[in-house]
Amino acid sequence: MTLLSVKDLHVSFRTEAGLVEAVRGVSFSLGRERLGIVGESGSGKTITGRSVLRLIRPPGRISAAEMTFDGIDLMGASEKQMRALRGQRIAMVMQDPKYSLNPVMKIGAQLTEGLRLRDRVGAAEARAKAIAALEAVHIRDPERVMEAYPHELSGGMGQRVMIAMMLIPNPDLLIADEPTSALDVTVQAEVLSILDNLVRSRGMGLIFISHDLRLVARFCDRVLVMFKGRVVEELEARHLMQARHPYTQGLLNCLPRIGGPRAPLPGLDRSADWARG
């Protein structure tokens, strides 16, 4: 069953230097599966993720032939309808907990704010739900974390708090924008396995945005590779090593490997036909 369907998505920004087309005709569909979007900086992967929630500020403009989520037309929806979707049914985890949590609000208050205001849940019940959410992301002493401010948490803890926050309303679709890029490798592995378990056990759809092809390959079912606002290749994650497109191959080959040869790393040829236009 298709949860999200995007056809011919364009996002452009009118700047002083002229029209910048960040996304140029991206199409994909997503069931209750894990889709990875990979690309280097400026490829349009983050803008694509944000477009689904219509979180593009002017002068940015979104247009699409079709963008539907669970039968709802996202392009035609009113701002009020979008607000009802955001967080409740489509949630987004941002890259850096340092900037995405409110620095002057305790974690407990941030976790329960939505429940209290939007769902009119009582204080005790909201607190119980928040603690359960923290336990679901493997935070050992949730009582202490509830009383902590964001600066008192490590990066890995902060990221887990953000994931917990997004999971409280039990969304159908989670968009994770580089959720582990700010973390150390061992913490990264832990956060990913938590995310993976939650997505599987709750049957959510996941869009996982990352610059790291290797990470996406291991974590997702399907991968979209983006370059200059276009999808250059779509493939099953387990067949990544058989990638056909020169850009995907280039991205894979330019990474050093433990025990690999000392020869200069192959660079990306940006002069080929596919890279133009």
């Binding site: 280097e40 991205l251 200069p264 660079g267």
Partner: peptide, 15 residues
């Protein structure tokens, strides 16, 4: 840096 730019920079440092 991006992966492809990282490769170029590492090559430069080695040279």
């Amino acid at each position: 840096l991006d992966a492809s730019v990282q490769a170029e920079t590492l090559n430069l440092l080695n040279r």
